[in-house]
Amino acid sequence: MRIVDPTSGTAPEDTVAVVAAADGAAGALCGLSNSKPGAHDILAAIGRRLADDHGLGPNGLEAKPSAAVGADPALLDHLAAQYRLAVVAIGD
């Protein structure tokens, strides 16, 4: 028997890349926390230890305003323009 696939639809478009950092980016690495307890602490510690152990810096730390909502695209673009690398804490 022929049925209509209940999962069918139009496939998503390719992911749009955020703005890349210029060569003269202000920072090396930025942590981005999902605002859940613990995530901020872990990212802060990673940033400190990368600077202390490997001289990687300067490092920043940002957070979503709330774990209940997605990150503001403007924040992502801002971070992408300011830093070469990001460590993102998601899902806890």
């Binding site: 049925i3 209509v4 696939d5 999962t7 069918s8 639809g9 139009t10 496939a11 998503p12």
Partner: peptide, 14 residues
């Protein structure tokens, strides 16, 4: 989360 756009047919199927 999947990013798929439903059609009227798939909504009707559900």
């Amino acid at each position: 989360p999947r990013g798929v756009t439903p059609t009227l047919r798939s909504v009707a199927a559900n």
